[in-house]
Design a protein around this nucleic acid. Structure first.
Lengths: 135, 135
DNA sequence: TATTGTTATACTCTATAACTATA
DNA sequence: TATAGTTATAGAGTATAACAATA
């Protein structure tokens, strides 16, 4: 058993990151999944709620109450698609964009802090490796 | 928003790893947490169940039925500590050690396969970085 | 009084299947 | 009939508090 499990290493770091994110998200009034939704919406336009659910790895049935909350909070809008009235197009409001930007900024600051033990080169390689390995 | 979130990258890779581990663990008749327990026990001796729970990030109350199963499967033994009869010392059986070894070997093979897109140097840096960042 | 292991219980997260309205 | 969104519900995972035995 010469090296540690990749899974165990990822799990440990993941837990650290999530613990550090929680107070930031709380302060911004966002859940982890709410943040995932806003991030994905800012990334590029998305057609259906099902596509959104799949993109962030969330179940479509759980997505409904989450979108309800985000809509009530004025962070996004849901509108029936004129070309297919079953579908709803989802769009960030200006407030949603602003909230996302503030949250992402605080999270990146936290992450840089957490990454401080690494050299610039190690940090760069870490992000390259993770990006290359994701599906 | 110049770079991706570390948390999102970790989550995506974590999901991939866990999906790839599931069939291996199923074939070995182990749950994810059962594997975590065996791994930790093989690492170095541990005094109390509470210490074990904390070490793997599991709740002490949930640990009980998990240890029950592993004990029934003949993979570990629980014996009252003679010096403190409240405490139980936990030890891997030879079968537990063998099962762990076979599982870890299969998981590492899978991981190497998954890590194939990286150069040897990137792979090495990834493990160094993850090890350095864990708590 | 404090601690180890245990049990019971409640709470959250997640997935499945069934419903509606459109296509 | 098939699909988008929705709802209801069951199941798994998780945490909290209370208990017995021992220190």
């Amino acid at each position: 058993m010469e090296r540690e499990d990749l899974g165990a290493l990822l799990a440990q770091l993941m837990r650290r990151v999530m613990e550090a994110e929680r107070p930031i998200l709380d302060a911004q009034g966002l859940s982890m999944w709410g943040y995932a939704v806003l991030s994905r919406l800012a990334d590029q336009p998305i057609q259906t709620q099902q596509a959104l659910a799949k993109a962030i790895g969330y179940d479509k049935s759980r997505l409904i109450p989450l979108l309800d909350t985000l809509e009530q909070d004025g962070l996004l809008t849901r509108q029936p698609d004129p070309t297919d009235r079953r579908a709803h197009t989802i769009a960030l409001t200006p407030e949603g964009t602003a909230r996302l930007k503030a949250t992402k900024s605080a999270i990146h600051t936290m992450e840089e802090d957490l990454l401080a033990p690494l050299t610039a080169s190690q940090k760069q390689t870490l992000f390259i490796a993770l990006s290359r390995l994701k599906p």
